[in-house]
Nucleic acid binder design. Structure first.
Length: 870
RNA sequence: GGGCGAAUAGCUCAGAUGGUGAGAGCGUCUGCCUUACAAGCAGAAGGUCACCCGUUCAAAUCGGGUUUCGCCCACCA
């Protein structure tokens, strides 16, 4: 045992143990076992880069759950994999790989570019694998999946085709969210809104053949170049005379009609709305309703195009400034107010999105939403914590169609083919010349032409991720894995992707497998820094998890995080908490060291003869098991971790281990048994150190702690009340020592008055008092001759003999105790005389309180006597 | 404009169906190098459980309202 140092150093141990687990194939389930299965599919990390602290949290939660389930008799599968993350990866490769070399994506061409991305993918997939292994994740690497693998892609395409034939996928020309930097369409869910301080510009539009103006208010004056109407509310008295007239669009000098529609808010701005159909969703609706001209004034990259001629080629926000200057010079700016403008930004690159009119592919979501709402409503899928159900329901009840086409190269190419003969871009009939097919058709089924081209766009990343729980398990084939492991049990993820991913997975599972994809959804919080700010690269408050592991060890990182992760609020991360995790590991390490050196002869199985203190710990242990089960069922891992921390430190180490160092318990105790049980309970949180300690046990053990049977409650036939009382006695004596500033070395003499049984127990455990409370002599039932401090407990009166006690201080202490007791007695008496209380309160509570009253009455008498004797 | 959540010790948070003198970690103070651990041990101080009203024999806990903070959703430009 001498190679075990007093400081736990995870260096080297963790890697070695992970290798061992892999070698023993502990993470690969036996598909033929008779055990019930328990499956988690990992939320696939993006191959964009390295794992963040958020991933550490997410994966620790899953690892804890899967390890507990394995030890509780389930055939577990935790399936790893990664997401190709279309936009993010493509943009990263462009910027990190091509830009430094001065290469542009289009110079390279689609195929060559994709080769580059695949290279990147391989590189980062390796990084991510290594990081998950460093963390200790019990992932079955033999089943790793990738959303853009050849096999997975087939499933994605199949789903597209199926939905198309069901009439749930269509192409439409609409205003969509466009990122001028990523140069692609985005779904509504990929756009974040941010309140920014902006301006509300009031611009005067001259009315034709008149000297009058109509003033409109806008936050985006640059779009005026594309205005094709002005709209007022038909009820608006101010504008009755000019409805139907024509205004002159300044700068462009275009004649535009003044129309009326109920939509326009009389209260806002001037009550007149400029209509820019190509750059605002509602204006677009208006244009359809009133057959207005649609003029697109912007290029995809956010610069002005030929339709905005004076400003052609200029950036949109620059244009805004210039247009205002221009209008000012024409004296057409009435005023400019400060105004808070909510703007949409690209969730990836934070560029303000541009509403852009274009043809995109959409999924009709309404038909899919109903069943998804139902399975949560009827409890087939449970969401933890419950409050997220509201958000889930709200989104599904108001779900809008999903724009799934992306103007990218990295992704699943849309399986739509156009016949050169039959298809015409501007046809209103949408299906003419369009062929949807899982494989490229040889010829057009309508005209037989062989000139067929595939849609250039790819699918939204989430269009592949939403199939994750079943596509990864073999679907659509009825594979052994699919039959055995689907539906899965639990999904753990952050609440931020409740719409993007979770709700859609539920919809997809129900639509394609006719089954729920998982039974439990565990939402965990987001990680923020100490000040509550989001982790971000620009703030530099996002620590590199691998550095933390190198510094503290993976166990410390995992446990520290679990200790500070609240159920319902964001995690406020600080490195200190990881240090707490490390200290805990060190504590466990040293406790094990004590047991394995000092008590090496004690049995690892539960001894048939348990000492009083073994029984005491057994009792505490049983309560611990109950609590752990309660928390685990509810996925309250934070409470679970805290409970374990508290038990190990403050019950096991502080009391039990201290006691068993003292004869006669040092000869015979159950410490090895308890340690073994505790290691098992701790293992899911801190897998490495628990395995390491476990391996150092005698040969009477399984290959790995992960194969151990879960801890069971211990049968206790005898009451442990006296032990509990003894601990309280010791605490009270220590407390007196502190109150009267008695030096730590000074041994105390005490007098105890109690019944015979308790006297016997105290005599038997005399040494405990000596060692833990520094009491040298205990006398029974004699009258104190000198000054004493008095402790009154339900079954005991203890006099601590003190030389030169501060009598006044003791009097004051006892008097305040009397005050407290008097108050309590009054309260309890009142209650016990209240008929309603007697009628309604639980009988156990009444008994408990009656006992408390009785004890308080006795106690107060003794304290009064003690004061009299002072 | 709707909806959700939070408010408990100096800080970060636990407190299960209402019932123990409201707890932990960190920080602060006091005393200890007690042969597992000074990354430790033994103590202490510090709380009208945001505020008001109500329900109840009994409220940190349940209901209503107020205030402050955070988040989500929403086509008033």
């Amino acid at each position: 045992m001498d190679e075990i140092t007093s400081r736990y150093d995870p260096t080297g141990i963790e890697d070695k143990i992970y290798e061992f687990w892999l070698k023993e194939k502990l993470f690969t389930p036996d598909v033929n076992s008779k055990k019930p299965s328990y499956t988690i599919t990992i939320p696939p990390p993006n191959v964009t880069g390295r794992l963040t602290l958020g991933h550490i949290l997410n994966n620790t939660i899953q690892d804890v759950i899967i390890r507990y389930k394995k030890m509780n008799g389930y055939e577990t599968l935790w399936l790893p994999g990664m997401d190709h993350a279309g936009i993010a990866t493509q943009v990263k490769v462009e910027e990190d790989r091509l830009l430094p070399r001065g290469i542009k994506k289009h110079d390279l061409g689609r195929e060559k570019f994709l080769e580059e991305v695949w290279k990147w993918k391989e590189e980062y997939a390796n990084v991510i694998r290594a990081q998950l292994k460093k963390m200790g994740c019990a992932l079955d690497w033999t089943r790793e999946q990738f959303t853009l693998s050849e096999e997975y892609s087939k499933k994605v395409i199949r789903v597209f085709v199926e939905l198309y034939h069901k009439g749930l996928i269509y192409r439409g020309e609409r205003i969509i969210n466009w990122c001028p930097r990523c140069l692609t369409a985005l779904s509504d869910e990929q756009v974040e809104t941010r309140e920014t301080s902006g301006k509300l510009y009031y611009i005067k539009y001259p009315i034709k053949n008149s000297k009058d103006f109509i003033t409109v208010a806008t936050t985006r004056p640059e779009t005026m170049l594309g205005d094709t109407a002005i709209c007022v509310n038909p009820k608006d008295k101010r504008f009755q005379s000019i409805i139907g007239k024509t205004a002159i669009l300044p700068i462009m000098n275009r004649e535009i009609p003044i129309i009326a529609d109920e939509y326009v808010d009389l209260e806002f701005g001037t009550g007149a709305l400029k209509v820019t159909p190509a750059h605002d969703p509602f204006d677009f609706e208006l244009s359809k309703k009133y057959n207005l001209t649609i003029i697109n004034i912007m290029n995809p990259d956010g610069t002005m195009n030929e339709n905005a001629d004076p400003y052609r080629g200029q950036e949109r926000f620059e244009t805004r400034k210039k247009i205002i200057e221009h209008l000012k010079s024409l004296d057409l700016v009435e005023k400019i107010d400060n105004y808070t403008v909510p703007i949409g930004i690209c969730e990836r690159c934070e560029t303000p999105i541009e509403p852009r009119l274009s043809k995109q592919w959409f999924v009709k979501m309404k038909p899919l939403a109903g069943p998804a709402l139902e399975v949560v409503r009827d409890g087939r899928i449970k969401i933890y914590p419950k409050r997220w159900v509201n958000l889930y329901n709200h989104w599904l009840e108001n779900v809008r169609d999903w724009c799934i086409s992306r103007q990218l190269w990295w992704g699943h190419r849309i399986p739509i083919y156009y016949c050169k003969n039959c298809y015409h871009e501007n046809d209103n009939e949408t299906s003419k010349g369009i062929i949807v097919s899982e494989t490229k058709p040889e010829q057009c089924p309508q005209c037989g032409s062989r000139e067929i081209s595939q849609d250039e766009d790819v699918l939204d990343t989430w269009f592949s991720s939403w199939l994750w729980p079943f596509a990864t398990l073999g679907w659509p084939e009825q594979t052994q894995d699919f039959k055995r492991f689907y539906p899965t049990q639990t999904l753990a993820t952050g609440w931020d992707i409740i719409y993007l991913w979770v709700a859609r997975m539920i919809m997809a599972g129900l639509e394609f497998t006719k089954n729920i994809p998982f039974s439990n959804v565990v939402f965990h919080p987001m990680i923020r820094d100490e000040k509550g700010r989001k982790m971000s690269k620009s703030l530099g408050n996002s620590p590199e998890p691998m550095d933390l592991i190198a510094k503290y060890g993976a166990d410390a990182l995992r446990f520290g995080l679990m200790l500070i992760t609240p159920r319902e609020q964001d995690v406020l991360y600080s490195e200190k908490s990881i240090d707490v995790g490390r200290k805990f590991c060190n504590k466990l390490w040293n406790a094990s060291r004590l047991i394995m050196t000092t008590f090496s002869d004690s049995p690892e199985t539960l001894p048939t003869e348990l000492t009083d203190f073994d029984l005491w710990l057994a009792n505490e242990f049983n309560q611990l098991l109950k609590d752990l089960e309660y928390y685990l069922e509810r996925f309250e891992l934070n409470a679970l971790a805290r409970r374990l921390y508290d038990f190990v430190w403050h019950r096991f180490c502080d009391w039990y281990l201290e006691i068993i160092k003292i004869p006669p318990y040092n000869k015979q105790n159950a410490s090895k048994y308890f340690l073994r049980q505790l290691l098992k309970l701790l293992h899911p949180f801190i897998p490495f150190i628990t395995e390491e300690i476990y391996q150092k046990f005698s040969d009477d053990r399984k290959k790995s702690i992960l194969l151990e049977e879960y801890a069971k409650p211990i049968k206790i036939k005898k009451s442990v009340n006296i032990v509990n009382e003894t601990i309280t006695l010791i605490e009270e004596i220590r407390n007196i020592r502190g109150l009267f500033s008695i030096p730590a070395q000074e041994m105390l003499n005490i007098i105890i008055s109690t019944d015979e049984e308790r006297q016997k127990f105290i005599n038997k455990n005399n040494l405990l008092f000596q060692r833990l409370a520094k009491v040298s002599s205990i006398m029974f039932d004699s009258k104190p001759q000198t000054s004493v401090a008095t402790i009154v407990l339900p079954q005991y009166v203890v006099y601590v003999i003190l030389r030169g006690i501060d009598v006044e201080k003791e009097k004051k202490r006892l008097k305040s105790e009397i005050e407290f007791l008097t108050q309590r007695i009054d309260e309890l008496k009142n209650r016990l005389n209240n008929p309603r209380y007697l009628n309604q309160a639980h009988i156990e509570i009444q008994q408990k309180e009656a006992k408390r009253l009785e004890e308080s009455l006795i106690k107060i008498e003794y304290i009064k006597k003690a004061i009299a004797n002072l």
